[in-house]
């Protein structure tokens, strides 16, 4: 079975709010504000894909990414953890905001690959935070989809998947071909490639396609658009934190409990 894992690089998501800015011209963070990294849920999806290769559920994994030229770094990372192939749809700035357009690009590429039976995506990319692309790809392929998955096994022709539900974990059997979106789990922390694999990854070719080559020039992409980004702004949040000044824990605990009581946030039993 061939699996495709959809990747995306995003601005370092732990950049503190007070350092975050938006360029009003582009409605995006200014270039160079922080490094671009492979998003956390994309890391989980990649790790799951590699684990499925190790357990023999899939034979081949292709990493597919749409993004600017620099995002090829993420594909090198994918090759270093032993993805078999890497495909880069080179999208020049500004990045796409509309998940419908992103899904259209990824679909056009998926249709050119050896037909996959499984497509894995992160549950939500931490830039626009839509959480839609995996679901849209599935709908447009008319494949079943299960979201928030963190473990997958094969059972008699179907996949058995564990997902995070509203109340706790749920188990589903899913018919193939299928799409799954992946959530974080302690078993899905992305491994580090070893030095040999990293070196080998640098020598492996990355297939690159432009949107035009996929039949999605500016006009076609615009036609696939459904959501318009009208405005982006950074909210003002200035709050004053009252620090409990105390030398030792007992003093700090007493001072905190006093303040909580004064603020009527906690009642100590008499």
């Amino acid at each position: 079975m061939h699996a495709v894992v959809l990747l995306k690089q995003i601005l370092d998501w732990e950049l503190p709010p007070r350092k975050f800015r938006i360029d009003q011209e582009t409605k995006r963070p200014p270039d160079g504000l922080a490094p671009a990294l492979l998003g956390p849920f994309e890391q989980n999806a990649l790790e799951l894909a590699i684990q499925l290769k190790e357990t023999g559920v899939v034979e081949r994994v292709t990493a597919l990414l749409a993004g600017p030229p620099g995002a090829a770094d993420a594909l090198r990372k994918a090759l270093a953890v032993r993805c078999d192939d890497a495909v880069h749809i080179v999208v020049e700035a500004p990045d796409l905001h509309d998940p419908s357009q992103t899904a259209e690009l990824l679909l056009a590429a998926i249709r050119r690959l050896e037909p996959p039976e499984l497509v894995l995506a992160g549950r939500q990319a931490g830039d626009w935070d839509h959480g839609q692309v995996g679901h849209l790809v599935a709908e447009r392929l008319r494949w079943p989809v299960l979201g928030l998955v963190w473990q997958v096994e094969r059972i008699d022709g179907r996949l058995l998947a564990w997902r995070s539900g509203v109340y706790g974990s749920e188990q589903f059997a899913v018919r193939l071909p299928a799409v799954m979106t992946v959530t974080s789990h302690s078993s899905l922390r992305l491994r580090m490639g070893n030095v040999m694999d990293l070196m080998a990854a640098n020598r492996k070719p990355i297939t690159t396609w432009t949107p035009e080559e996929l039949g999605l020039g500016p006009e076609e992409l615009a036609a696939a658009g459904r959501l318009e980004l009208a405005d982006v702004w950074v909210p003002e949040v200035e709050r004053h934190c009252e620090l409990i000044e105390a030398e030792d824990p007992a003093e700090a605990v007493a001072a905190l409990l006093d303040r909580l009581e004064e603020l009527k946030l906690l009642k100590r039993p008499a």
């Binding site: 938006i22 409605k27 626009w128 982006v232 909210p235």
Partner: peptide
């Protein structure tokens, strides 16, 4: 958007 560091309309 951006993890709550900004809002989009």
């Amino acid at each position: 958007v951006f993890g709550g560091k900004a809002f989009a309309a």
